[in-house]
Design a protein around this nucleic acid. Structure first.
Lengths: 234, 234
DNA sequence: CGTGGTTTTGAGCCCGTTCAAGTATCGTGG
DNA sequence: CCACGATACTTGAACGGGCTCAAAACCACG
């Protein structure tokens, strides 16, 4: 999952265009590079914890993270995932409202609140970009709310596979809809409001119906996207 | 539900402070007033429809609206509510992703995309405010995702009553936690991912346990907030 | 005082959960 | 490279929370 060598230079950063910092003009790249701190996290590592004082903002360079919330009794819900170019922990609330954990090896640029604020003052175009990206996250959350409130287990799993494959449609060798999911069955379940067992049963059902195939660790291939679309209920 | 006479003047607008336009300095109020169009909607009236071209942005002056999404087979999910001072339909997507309907008589300022854009250019502070409000909506959506994915019917209803009562804690005569819900049982169900019958059963259960009382049309009084908090699972 | 919509209540069912056991996979150290 | 233990995944059987379907009660409005 490592995307080449770590980027130490904003000017050559592969995902700058998609990321919030793409709004910064070339002359600002030095200032950007000095504001950020490139952090690395291993799979499973917690990046921020729900309830702890919120002092930083993160923008993902490579890898995938999950945002989640849980109750003392152990019930956990994954609120969403964030992919390269996306950010998390913006809210200017006192404390973080979600726990963020790395699903893969993750490189992320960390900005302290104050440095981010200064950066925004220097390059106000950033704000429009942050707003636009927030709106996109909001739209994604709305989809998820519909899915959680009104879809069946089958529809949930189908929707999940489709939306995940769209995320990776631009990846090199994935035109045959082969993809490797960075999340476990439990994580898929916690994202879809189901149990591991149900996710597993639905997946084997889809395999039996020849809609997908499931390979070794977490590799899934969509054999019949149209059918999956039908099942997903969209 | 009408909050006095309709506001024709931004300078005396009661909710300007909370709303996005509170970020505009006094000298900009004329410009603001000229950009907006004050619209009125009756209960049940559709303000924007999912799928139709998105050309406007709305900021609520008085009343409550629901944002919802539905499937051709009739399944409906209410994504959220918007209250006075809040906005909806910002996303710069081509088409609206949700249908917005008035739950009460609603007064809202309508801005065309282009006029809003010009306003933002003239008063860039607006953007910070829009971003901050979007973050708040995002946090609310996250709560809702947790609720839909992991809470029981009882917990959902209790959470709903509590969060609604907080929205109205500042209202004049509501220190005894009496409130009148502007939504029907069906709307509560569509918000919580339940059926009307289940909502009704849970409510009568809570009445039996003397946690709440339910009055005539949609008036509810919270008798034991602590107990409700316990039931809500937070 | 009827008519239509909303809310409540009841009875039975089903989807997804729970609990339990079995199998595959992975990381680790010998 | 293999043996081992831990973790992840699958499969089965039984349960139950919330749904469906149906009917009654309540209310608002003419």
């Amino acid at each position: 999952m490592r995307h080449g060598e770590p980027h130490t230079d904003c000017a050559t950063c592969a995902i700058r265009a998609e990321s919030f910092c793409g709004a910064i003009p070339l002359r600002g790249l030095d200032s950007l590079a000095r504001s950020r701190r490139l952090m690395r996290f291993d799979r499973r590592q917690t990046i921020v914890s729900e309830g702890e004082p919120a002092v930083s903002f993160f923008s993902i360079v490579s890898g995938v993270v999950k945002l989640c919330r849980s109750l003392p009794d152990g019930r956990t819900q994954i609120i969403g995932f964030r992919f390269p170019g996306e950010f998390f922990a913006v809210s200017d609330a006192e404390t973080h409202t979600t726990t963020v954990e790395a699903l893969t090896f993750v490189e992320a640029c960390q900005f302290s609140r104050s440095r981010l604020k200064r950066l925004v003052q220097a390059f106000p175009q950033i704000q429009a970009r942050l707003l636009e990206m927030s709106q996109r996250y909001l739209a994604t959350s709305e989809d998820q709310i519909f899915l959680l409130g009104r879809k069946t287990a089958r529809e949930k799993v189908a929707s999940f596979l489709l939306s995940y494959s769209e995320k990776f449609a631009r990846e090199p060798v994935d035109k045959d809809h082969r993809m490797s999911l960075p999340m476990t069955r439990t994580e898929i379940a916690d994202f879809l409001g189901l149990t591991t067992e149900t996710v597993s049963r639905v997946l084997t059902g889809l395999v039996r119906e020849k809609v997908i195939t499931v390979g070794l660790p977490h590799s899934v291939r969509l054999l019949n996207v149209d059918m999956l679309q039908g099942i997903s209920g969209n």
